[in-house]
């Protein structure tokens, strides 16, 4: 360590670069996907090209929206994205997806069959694919916007959960829009 510190700045930088290159190559060789962190916020376009799941997701949303008579309040809309730049919107949608799965779909999983049992595994898969998705910098604004969504759902109680299910088509389209 002491030896390293004595060396010139550029030399240690070069060393670091070489070391990281080696590390990357090693990771690559092990097929451990040594990609930059931000690219974990990515879903494959093919996830959104399977009509079966697209149809089921939209039908489930349609069914639930029929039971949602509150036309004034919307969870996934302009407010949710306000102040969040495009690069971070996939991460934002990941937060919404995880909340929807854990706090809405799982508790309501007995309802809206058979669509529910077809859509939940699909969304769970997307959630798993985004498990490493992080953002660089602080995500205060994102947390605030997601918190607002969560509170709205909680405030509306059961009808908030129905509302969230009724917006699964919007969740789907925004995941496609921002993560692909």
């Amino acid at each position: 360590m002491a030896v390293l510190q004595k060396k010139s700045m550029s030399f240690s930088f070069m060393g670091l670069l070489a070391a990281s290159c080696l590390l990357l190559i090693a990771l690559w060789a092990q097929e451990a996907v040594g990609l930059p962190i931000s690219s974990h916020c990515k879903l494959d376009v093919s996830d959104f090209q399977r009509p079966y799941f697209t149809n089921r997701t939209f039908r489930l949303a349609e069914e639930a929206s029929l039971a949602d008579n509150n036309t004034d309040v919307r969870l996934i809309g302009d407010e949710l994205f306000q102040g969040v730049n495009r690069n971070n919107r996939c991460y934002l949608m990941k937060q919404v997806l995880n909340f929807t799965l854990a706090e809405v779909l799982i508790p309501q999983s007995d309802r809206f069959q058979p669509y529910m049992q077809q859509v939940v595994p699909f969304l769970t898969k997307l959630s798993n694919q985004l498990s490493l998705c992080q953002i660089s910098g602080n995500g205060q604004r994102i947390q605030k916007n997601v918190q607002t969504l969560k509170e709205t759902v909680k405030q509306l109680g059961e009808s908030g959960e129905i509302k969230a299910i009724g917006e699964l088509n919007l969740l789907f389209m925004h995941l496609r829009n921002y993560c692909v």
């Binding site: 349609e62 949602d68 036309t71 088509n169």
Partner: peptide, 10 residues
């Protein structure tokens, strides 16, 4: 009398 929610794309 209100329509169901309508999304043109779908």
């Amino acid at each position: 009398s209100r329509t169901p929610r309508f999304t043109p794309w779908w």
